[in-house]
Design a protein around this nucleic acid. Sequence first.
DNA 1: CCTAGGATTGAGACCGGACTCACATCGATT
DNA 2: AATCGATGTGAGTCCGGTCTCAATCCTAGG
Lengths: 364, 364
Amino acid sequence: MSTDGSRRRDVTVADVAKAAKVSKAQAARALGNYGAVSDEVRERVLAAAEELEYRPNELARSMNTGKSNTIGVVVGDIENPHFGLAMRGITDTAKKSGYNVILINTDEERAAEVDAVRVLLDKRVDGLIVAPASSVETSHLQQVRESGRPLVLLDRAAAGVDVETFAVDMGSISYESTKHLIEAGHRRIAFVSTVRTEAPYVAGMELDSSQISDRLDGIHRAFDEAGLPHPTDLVRLNAGDADSIMRITQDLLSGPDAATAIIASDGLIALSVVEAIQQSGRSVPQDVSLLMYDDFAWTRLTTPPLTVISQPVYDMGIAAASALIRQIEGRKAAGPGPDLVATLIKRGSVGAPKDAEVLSQAGG
Amino acid sequence: MSTDGSRRRDVTVADVAKAAKVSKAQAARALGNYGAVSDEVRERVLAAAEELEYRPNELARSMNTGKSNTIGVVVGDIENPHFGLAMRGITDTAKKSGYNVILINTDEERAAEVDAVRVLLDKRVDGLIVAPASSVETSHLQQVRESGRPLVLLDRAAAGVDVETFAVDMGSISYESTKHLIEAGHRRIAFVSTVRTEAPYVAGMELDSSQISDRLDGIHRAFDEAGLPHPTDLVRLNAGDADSIMRITQDLLSGPDAATAIIASDGLIALSVVEAIQQSGRSVPQDVSLLMYDDFAWTRLTTPPLTVISQPVYDMGIAAASALIRQIEGRKAAGPGPDLVATLIKRGSVGAPKDAEVLSQAGG
DNA sequence: CCTAGGATTGAGACCGGACTCACATCGATT
DNA sequence: AATCGATGTGAGTCCGGTCTCAATCCTAGG
């Protein structure tokens, strides 16, 4: 074995300097590529470094440059393809500029997020990208601002935190897609989301997520415009695990006032909703119409293929990382950020409600 | 604004010490919770720290403890739900033990992987989890070993790198599932994988991925056992983007010797294969049978639901992280690692081939 | 009342680099 | 030949913690 156990002390500039018979300062200059070094010395140092397999200690370097070349990313759940894709955009962009990424999952819990932010700050990341679990309680994010380190928000806005935020305009796409459903004849449109609340939904209640608030606003607006009352009894929050989603779905579909269309707030929810629909012997879109957020590849493969709201998630990741790095490097924004617009992709999961007579009432 | 710009120097132990009117050493002891400190001093120091909003610099701490409490994870593509899920297992486990995770994507390119490993080592991570892009060229992984820092392999083995490896036994599950297809009457079974090669596949050629080699071995074994020749002309590698996969699929399905069953080496491939099948007007499983690796939730939603090979990916992540942390902390393995067995989940995408006469030849 | 031994405490070294500063060196200028 | 500015170079400080070591403070035992 060429290994002498795990205790092998790392080779340092001092070691290289000694081997190259120059001062530590000169060796450091040659290796760090700064200051003035004669060709001869540089060569000797580099040769010695090679020979000794010298590797710089980035920790030490970071400590006195004050730069770690690392950015912290805090998201709800990397297992969620939505964040997986955003993360890809972030890491791709970071890599291009020579940054590494520390990832922390919060499970959408604020306490975990507070922790995450603190840990990353302690680790002296150069900047942070956060998808805030709560758009309301944001004191920890304000602290980041005060620490002076760049912060950028992803996917969701946060009240009182005045930083660049990269998220699509949920209000308008929600409005647009609800309108699509209403025009198809639906009146009983349900909305299912994981967002946690203490109590069941009532119109106008404050929600933890700006995203969901915006979507509900959009729905409401579409109903308003059509001169119809928004069926808030069909808004179901706290849709956690698959079981609870399936229970919620069954509930939504039963009784005389059953929903005729369901908007699933993300792919995971849609998965369970579809499953519940199938289990109940109903079919899409004959018995229920379905609309989901995020255009994952598999949505084209279901029968029928799903009508979805496509979000430029990858681009969002890129934009967030680019902006953060720009801030870190002290450059001004060259112009307005990219337009991150969501689009409604109409496939096969939205049809007319069974009870076709409601159609004639359209427009009230 | 309570912010005095971004230039605010961080509060250090020295500052706290001064405020608490004790020596730097005592302040450090009180804050770092080590050594002997009187209650009175501790209180004063803690109060001062609170007042000044002191936060330890983990970089400095790491530098002279030699521990960064960070582990590096190198995977092919975090966008791939397979890795997303494994990553989740890793981060969950790491968090429990107080470790953070730096993630690097390699796009399955060895050069990127070599870079990634070097960067992480330079950043002085406490250990590494790598899903090696190549199971053959592994010198950079051997270097990790020699650096003395713990290394654990995920998802794939690497030749000549003697470290704990967490991957399912692809050979046996591949054998088992091929047998399933053969028993259903299939003889023309195709295998489509992204693994890159210089030349088209020929039996026994060396592949970069131990996973794929093992799967091909399993297929071969099943054919051997049935006394049938393995149709190596149906092994298609280099299936990169969606377009190329669709082209490959069309090719596989055309001609007199078309495949009657396709094994998709991962979810992304399956997605494009199904799309190509649908586009060609064929249906699963009447015209073609399909089997894919990884049991994603959406595979239950397609028509028909897909027969898949389920891998305990999340557990794999947990096992890898646990083992790595155990090694970092110098503990011996308590016992053999968990059994990471893949299982064949029979749903609806495998049926008898159209040309039913081949059935009678079974066992021939 | 005196002292051994543990608890406290402060000074300062150290981790591994980057960087400042004073001191050569040397060719070019006048 | 004297002067000047542009390199080259080494000694030593600093980053922000941890940790060693010797000195000091107490308190109980004799």
